[in-house]
């Protein structure tokens, strides 16, 4: 008899108010997912691979004046694959190398990929990375590669997977071996949260299962969904929402006390 597996819908909430732009998530991701080291050459060629990146913008504090010091403020936004439910990258792949799985993840099948790079063109968030060269690591780092993660050859696409290797381990160990439900607590205990989430010192990144009613993600979404709670505290939004991509990453916008001051002055 086939046992029905519990359903999952993986979601991430990014609280920008807590993000300090420290890049710990970027480093953690790089180490966890066997991403080649981005050297100067890669940045100059615009071929660096950062499954998660911190975008930094300089914004005018008072928009009526020119954005020059001291009238500027640095803004950070971590961008990773938004795992869209209505992903523009999926229908354009001729070989089904990217598709949607039943846990709400936008999955990249490395073996199938032939490298047309159409998905990268059609991704509005620019989170798909192409292996222009064969991946190489310095001799000293030979043994640090994560055995759970495939090393991608040249000529194929890769992107953030929400650390799918950890999610499947959670399924194997927590659900399979112990027969329990995956919860926030059990994932944290077993070190099975995505690498970036575990590395974030300020707790700006929150990951969880939306099918689990008690998860922290659900709590935050309920609190901050602008459609449900029209209060000022509802800070939730999704990036480039008008493209109707239905991302599974929700951002909570920054609280700006200084903006109130500027308004009061005016």
């Amino acid at each position: 008899m086939v046992q029905e597996r519990p359903k999952h819908k993986w979601t991430m909430v990014v609280d920008i108010d807590r993000c300090s732009g420290c890049q710990a998530c970027v480093v953690a991701c790089q180490a966890e997912n066997n991403i080649t080291i981005n050297e100067q050459r890669d940045f100059l060629q615009r071929r660096a691979k950062e499954w998660i990146r911190i975008e930094r913008y300089w914004e005018a504090i008072d928009p009526s004046k020119p954005a020059e010091f001291p009238n500027v403020k640095a803004r950070f936004i971590p961008i990773m694959c938004q795992q869209c439910d209505n992903a523009p990258c999926e229908p354009v792949c001729p070989v089904y190398a990217t598709y949607h799985n039943n846990e709400g993840l936008n999955v990249q099948v490395y073996n199938r990929c032939v490298g047309t790079r159409y998905c990268a063109n059609n991704c509005p968030y620019q989170v798909r990375f192409f292996n222009f060269w064969e991946p190489v690591w310095p001799e000293s780092l030979r043994n640090q590669l994560n055995p759970d993660v495939t090393v991608r050859s040249r000529g194929i696409m890769e992107k953030c997977t929400f650390c799918v290797q950890r999610l499947s381990r959670a399924r194997r160990t927590i659900e399979g071996r112990r027969g329990k439900r995956i919860t926030d607590e059990s994932m944290t205990e077993e070190n099975l949260m995505p690498a970036c989430v575990m590395a974030c010192p300020t707790g700006a990144l929150v990951f969880g299962d939306r099918e689990d009613p008690k998860s922290r993600v659900n709590e935050l979404l309920k609190e901050h969904d602008p459609r449900q709670a029209k209060s000022v505290a509802a800070r939730g939004y999704r990036v480039l929402e008008d493209l109707t991509t239905e991302p599974n990453v929700v951002y909570l916008k920054k609280v700006d006390p200084h903006l109130k001051k500027v308004k009061a002055h005016a």
């Binding site: 060629q45 615009r46 071929r47 660096a48 490298g115 790079r117 990268a120 063109n121 620019q126 990375f129 192409f130 292996n131 222009f132 060269w133 064969e134 040249r154 000529g155």
Partner: peptide
Amino acid sequence: NRGTGVLGVNRPAMW
């Protein structure tokens, strides 16, 4: 032999 890297394409100009 070397990979698509020998082209000028990059991110975001994948084509």
